[in-house]
Design a protein around this nucleic acid. Structure first.
Lengths: 199, 199
DNA sequence: CCTACTTTATGATCAGAATCATAAAACTAT
DNA sequence: ATAGTTTTATGATTCTGATCATAAAGTAGG
């Protein structure tokens, strides 16, 4: 989102996180702008029984957790490293100052927020009204679309998500995801090779 | 969101919609900025079987449907008048020009988007991991908080939503909402008087 | 006032996803 | 190579919210 030179010039530092480590917790105050340098970060919630919901997964160069920097509220979810990762960290004030000085980048963040809202609107409606197979296809298509810019429908996409992650993204249980994927394969909506899903 | 004088100066017009009328449909291209002047507008989705999901309800002076004006995508939901309403309509180009000339207002829209993202993040997590009673309390608290700025927890809030609307906001069925509300009353989380819910 | 419709309500039944149990295959770390 | 963990897999059972049926109370329009 922000190039490395600008990050360094603005005073960002690169921090390392081990797989499973938290960058911040649900309910805490937002103090930094974050951008993935290496690895994978997920934002998630756990309910009382420990069931997880994954709000989003962020990879190389993607920023996350900015919304509370723009309005006055606490983090609605945790940020947790999926694998060992390196993440740029820029203090809130410096981030906001940088945006003021770079209206073009500010615009990019506004449209990123808009796009994320679009995705959330779709997912919340899917989860509340559609059956498992439909939900799973939506998530797969979303990840496919975001995998490489301008990927065509005809091109085959290899899903790198585990069944458990798909479950946590769609609000389903892992067994339900496994069974639904099997049914989707029978229907020809996707295929499985060496346990990996392709769509 | 934008004051009436500015709206008029920028070239906005006031349009009337009858209860049940659509302002735009899911999948169509965004051409206007909308702001409620009188009445109530909901954004919603219908699935194949006609089951509705309400993304949000917008009242006096609230804007809606801006995200696709900031990024390149189609409406993820419909906009439908809940009651007879009057809505300001400003062409996209004029809206974006107005924002450019008024960075302060632009900032307000960015934080509105951030806040809406916050609400969606909470709802999608609630819907996918929490049971009916929990979901309903969340929605009630959200509407309570937005009913008047700075409402305290101790103050009693009268819920103007119907059971059906609560169902469509939480992804539940109307019978489930009715039964859950009864249980919540027994637990002392809210009370019912003349069929109206108070929290 | 009368008729339509909407909203709230309640009981009975059903269905589908969650849960529980178990296990094999595939990685990971030592 | 070995032990431990994660991932995928499948069958049996349970349970909760959806569905179906029905009705009374409330509201709106002519």
């Amino acid at each position: 989102m922000i190039d490395h030179t600008s990050l360094l010039n603005s005073g960002a530092i690169l921090k390392k996180y081990k797989r499973g480590e938290f960058l911040f917790q649900e309910g805490s105050i937002a103090r930094y702008y974050y951008q993935v340098h290496q690895g994978e970060i997920k934002m998630n919630n756990y309910n009382q029984e420990g069931k997880e919901y994954i709000q989003g997964i962020f990879t190389k160069e993607k920023s996350f957790g900015e919304p509370p920097l723009f309005a006055d509220f606490k983090y609605p979810a945790n940020a947790e490293a999926i694998v060992d990762s390196e993440v740029w960290q820029l203090p809130k004030e410096k981030f906001l100052k940088f945006l003021e000085e770079n209206p073009h980048i500010h615009h990019k963040f506004t449209s990123t927020l808009a796009l994320r809202l679009y995705y959330k609107a779709i997912m919340v409606s899917e989860i509340s009204t559609q059956e498992p197979e439909h939900r799973i296809l939506r998530i797969l298509d979303y990840f496919k679309k975001n995998s490489e810019p301008g990927i065509t429908e005809s091109k085959i996409y290899k899903v790198e998500l585990t069944r458990q992650q798909l479950a946590d993204l769609t609000g389903l249980r892992v067994e339900t995801v496994i069974r639904s994927i099997k049914k989707l394969e029978q229907k020809g909506e996707l295929f499985i090779k060496d346990r990996k899903v392709y769509r």
